[in-house]
Nucleic acid binder design. Structure first.
Lengths: 148, 148
DNA sequence: TTATGTGCAAACTCTTTGCATTACC
DNA sequence: GGTAATGCAAAGAGTTTGCACATAA
């Protein structure tokens, strides 16, 4: 069952309170923008989106909020070769990415075998695995059709 | 058997010739710097290194050479969260990376099971896999000892 | 000789920071 | 009322580009 936005909002409120910080509508709006997005967004895209709700927000606030939210684990970022950093809401389900080199489409997937295999490899190197990032680059099925 | 530098130099010469371009000592020096390095280097670090051989080289030349060499597959780049893009010589052996979050150490590894599993997953999504990048983040064995 | 490659500096893009002001607790 | 958060503008870092000159073919 997917969480609805009020649960993320609650999470943010508790986090802010537990740290003795203050709640702000800006951080909420940014979180909501990521909640509503089906794809990964750049800081610039988030800024544009949030402005539709709150015309007065500044780009610096977006950057500040993003690093805060990421350091607290409410959101995640991925960085692909050329396109720079992109953010997504941490919906509590780890996944990896396939990125189409033609159209830029991002396919999210999860495979348990991949997870456990990495754990085995880490152990072999006496490495304490905390997290990982797997990006598979190639051509998505749509673009393959267009090629032929 | 590991290749020695003359083979990379030859590869560069042939590439340049086949494209109707010109050979330059700068590109060679940059390639040699990557050949001699045991770790991944940032453009700035490469610039500093190359300057020891060729005092007159410009940073712009380093950037231009790096994107040329990368687009031709002679070198590879990886980009970790904060530290930006880093380059390494393509020694013809694909590998993935473990990155220690404490000391920044990079461990290279290769595991065939990981490769074939990705191929299987890609097929399931009708995705034509071309390349991938797997970064595992955690604590290396040295840093684990220090912790306890 | 002629086009590519280079070095330098300026331009650009992305991100961070300083500061006065606003707004939460 | 006191402190964190914001908006703005300026500063920084990293990278790219324009142009005149150097150099390989």
């Amino acid at each position: 069952m997917a969480k609805d936005f009020s649960q993320y909002k609650e999470q943010l409120k508790e986090l802010v309170k537990s740290k003795g910080l203050k709640y702000s509508s800006q951080r909420e709006d940014i979180l909501k923008t990521l909640f509503n997005s089906k794809k990964h967004l750049t800081p610039e895209e988030i800024y544009t989106e949030v402005k539709k709700i709150n015309k007065n927000i500044g780009l610096a606030t977006v950057y500040r909020a993003l690093s805060f939210l990421e350091s607290e684990g409410l959101i995640n970022s991925i960085s692909f070769g050329v396109e720079g950093k992109k953010y997504e809401l941490n919906r509590g389900e780890h996944h990896d990415h396939m990125i189409c080199l033609k159209c830029g489409k991002i396919i999210e997937f999860f495979d348990e075998r991949l997870e456990s295999l990495q754990e085995i490899i880490a152990q072999k190197h006496d490495f304490k695995l905390i997290t990982h990032e797997l990006n598979m680059y190639g051509i998505c099925s749509n673009c393959q059709e267009e090629e032929s």
